[in-house]
């Protein structure tokens, strides 16, 4: 990725914070310029409008998430870290949450992001399927034909929509707690596949959540 000027970097950081905190529809490029205390013309010199800024922010998000998703694909990691791993995926999404809270509208308005986002979803699904395969290979989970694939698709959908869902449901609390609850909801989906051990697994999962959420 090309090296950015300090001003550009500052514009992006400010824009991301504003979009995340105030909501994408409520923020214009004039607002971003105002918060930075620069003229809208100056901002326009660096980025020609809000959608250009969003596209650039997406590129950052994409490369971050790709790094995280590629890690277990290229180098299988210790699966005891699953909870934390899923937490970090959610963290990436949370850092870019304005996008996920207004997904459909933004993808329609900036169509160039659509194929990129679609590829990212596919990578996420593959990552989940690989994690499930790992647990299946070690004899911990069992799947009937096709179940593993559909579960990894469902987990992907869960990750994409969890923040929006939590928002709609009015779930209160720090983003950390909402993320831990999202991880719990994700791992709970694999409970039935633990077979006869699913009951103790579910209980321990709940214990772990309680410990995190306090």
């Amino acid at each position: 990725m090309a090296v950015r000027s300090k001003t550009k970097e500052k514009i992006l950081r400010t824009a991301l914070a504003l979009l995340n905190n105030e909501g994408e529809v409520n923020i214009s490029s004039v607002d971003i310029a105002a918060v930075m205390d620069i003229s809208p013309g100056n901002l326009y010199y660096h980025y020609k409008g809000k959608d250009v800024i969003i596209t650039e922010l997406f590129a950052d998000f994409e490369s971050e998430l790709r790094q995280v998703l590629a890690a277990p694909v290229h180098k299988p990691m210790a699966l005891e870290d699953n909870w934390i791993y899923l937490y970090i995926i959610f963290e990436e999404i949370n850092d870019f949450r304005f996008f996920f809270l207004n997904l459909t509208a933004l993808l329609e308005r900036i169509p160039t992001l659509k194929p990129k986002f679609s590829r990212l979803l596919s990578l996420m699904q593959q990552t989940f399927e690989r994690l499930l395969s790992g647990l299946e290979a070690s004899g911990h989970l069992s799947f009937r034909s096709g179940e593993k694939n559909i579960l990894s698709e469902r987990l992907t959908a869960h990750f994409i929509y969890w923040l929006a869902y939590a928002d709609l449901r009015g779930l209160k609390g720090a983003s950390k707690i909402i993320i831990h609850e999202g991880v719990y909801a994700a791992l709970t989906q694999i409970t039935p596949h633990w077979g006869q051990r699913s009951e103790p697994y579910a209980a321990l999962l709940k214990d772990f959540l309680d410990e995190q959420v306090g």
Partner: peptide, 28 residues
């Protein structure tokens, strides 16, 4: 109690070694 639960949970999620299955089967 929670400490031990956490250890088993981590071992289970880890799916490394047979410890989890052995422990869990015994417990179940």
């Amino acid at each position: 109690n929670t400490d031990t639960a956490r250890k088993i949970w981590l071992a289970g999620i880890g799916a490394y070694g047979r410890a989890f299955s052995e422990v869990q089967e015994g417990l179940t």
